[in-house]
Design a protein around this nucleic acid. Sequence first.
RNA 1: GCGCUCGUAGCUCAAUUGGAUAGAGCGUCGGACUACGAAUCCGAAGGUUGCAGGUUCGACUCCUGCCGGGCGCACCA
Length: 660
Amino acid sequence: MISIEAELRRRCALAIGKAFGAEHAPSAVVKAGDPKFGDYQCNSAMALARALGQPPRTVAARIIEHLNLDSLCEPPTITGPGFINFKLHVVFIGQRLEAIASQSASLARAGVPPASHRQTVVVDYAGPNIAKEMHVGHLRSCVIGDAISRILEFQTHAVIRQNHVGDFGTQFGMLIRYAQEVQLQTGAFPPIEDLDTYYRQAAQRDREDAQFALEARHAVVALQAGEPQAVALWRNIHHESRRHAEQIFQLLGVKLTPQDERGESFYAPRLPGIVLQIAEALAVGGDGSDTALGGADTPSRLKELAVSPPDDRAEAAGALASPQALDRLTDAQLPPVIHKPLTCISDGAMCLFLPGYVDKDKQPLPLIIQKADGAYLYATTDLAALYFRIVEDKLTPNDQKPLNENWHADRVIYTTDSRQAQHFAMVFDAACAMRWHVHPQTGQRVDLVHASFGSILGADGKPFKTRSGESVKLRALLAEAMDRAAAVVAEKNPSLSADKQRQIATAVGIGAVKYADLKQDRTGDYEFVWERILSFDGNTGPYLQYAYTRICSIFRKAGDVENSQARLELVESAELNLARHLLKFPDAVEIAARDLKPHYICTYLYELCGLFSAFYENCPVLKAANPATVKSRLILCRVTQAVLKVGLNELLGIPVLEEM
RNA sequence: GCGCUCGUAGCUCAAUUGGAUAGAGCGUCGGACUACGAAUCCGAAGGUUGCAGGUUCGACUCCUGCCGGGCGCACCA
């Protein structure tokens, strides 16, 4: 069964097709703007009126003539300029809810249907830098990326989470060199309790000591060449960092595991092949075919760099190009305006020029895929990752963490902050230029999405920092959330055991922080204010968790009164309003998945709790007049509980509690 | 300078992407506990959606131009 909104849209499209021809078929069905207009409305008549040269209300009437609604709705009405209003039939509502409540399996899905077209979706999020402690800057990526993953996963898409860690940059030379130094002096590897301190000390040595800095550069080379001692130290740092990140993920309830981690170091061996591939395919003056220009200046240094380090894995990564192709890559041939993607060497760096990008001086802006010194950049790694996720065959021994099947992603989603918008636009354009955005099996266009988000600001509207201007550590932020929640629990519910209180404080504190982040449209900035986040009033995590505990409390008191064969009687307006809204949960999930915006689910759940409160105030459940009403109302409680659990817990990754 | 983005009630945010009378919470004011959890609920006041044009049956939403904030613009990620 698909969502009701989708079902009505389908039926309206069918009716429009029958009435006016299939070319007019797409139908605009949305939730009604106002309850007095029913549950849903079709807005297609007004749009069609012009094209058909008929009055919109006439068009609406003809749509209705061809509309088959079965017993879904009451007879539709035409209002205003030509809106078609649908009001769900009470009998239909009752049957649907009874069906959902009747089995634990259907309750577990809360009415949400599986996706009609199952896709393989890669979601790239979190991506912390190794050797630095995670800070608030990572919060949104973790929370939003995980929610998006959970939502798509719940729709039964095959979601592949990817943690693209920064673990192979130049900073590692510094860190390795510093680790060597400390080890030599103390005879023991320093415990990395505070990664930031460690990093800062290394950076300070790097700044102050030219000899140290030089050796740090050499350490990078040693690391990339696989020198055992450098690699061992790198592994050590890596291990410590991962341990730290794991703790954060676990505390946050983010479902990333070590198996999901493929960072810069993973892609490093593939980069030479990627650069070669792009350089040849898009060589300036060439058309990608084998027509090397004779006599052009040979950028021999780059040719050397592009094929080093000598690693046969580059070939496996798809290095189709021959080094000879690089012979024609001189910037002398670069046109002043870029009309098609071109690669060439500019100032010694391997550049990919894409149409539509210019710098401050209106000069073509390149996507640099290899620096003049031969090093690769994050654009290179991102392109390698895209190739890996979409094109590459995974059943090769090259993947250190092989899956059982090929990925060939249908969709790749990046959850990073909006400042990287241009970077991803360029990377996506580059992938398109290489035709890597075409699914190797289906030939369909792969959806490349930057699900960007804004910044977290302090109460003053400026970037969220500590008083001394440092970035707030994520661990400290979450600890404060739990402390604040613990204080409230101790005050409100002192009778609970200390252990129980701690458990509740964790769920409430972490949940509040996550919910505050998810409830707002991710594209905007938001202000982080403890009082607002941890409030029990309004659209907050604690408020929703509280609503859930009230329902649980009813069931604790109900004992075995519940009867799965009970019938739903919808009499009171509070009952009807709640019932109607419960059936719209699949619609909320669908639009949240469509736009990759978890806040649609938050808004839906908040409205649900408001309607449940009205029901709770006006319709006694356990003290209802007769047993049949008690059972009927317990069905509403049961489905509300299920929707809250699925929405909060499974889709948003926020814990629910039996009591608090 | 170019590009992206945002501007909605005193404050923090919504508005299913062009739909009907722009909705919530906080704060303010006024109410409801002998009550399935008052960590809650109900009511009131609060708006020329930054400004000015345009597009059309219909605009917070789209197009143009201003004003104001944020961010980005060649070898960091």
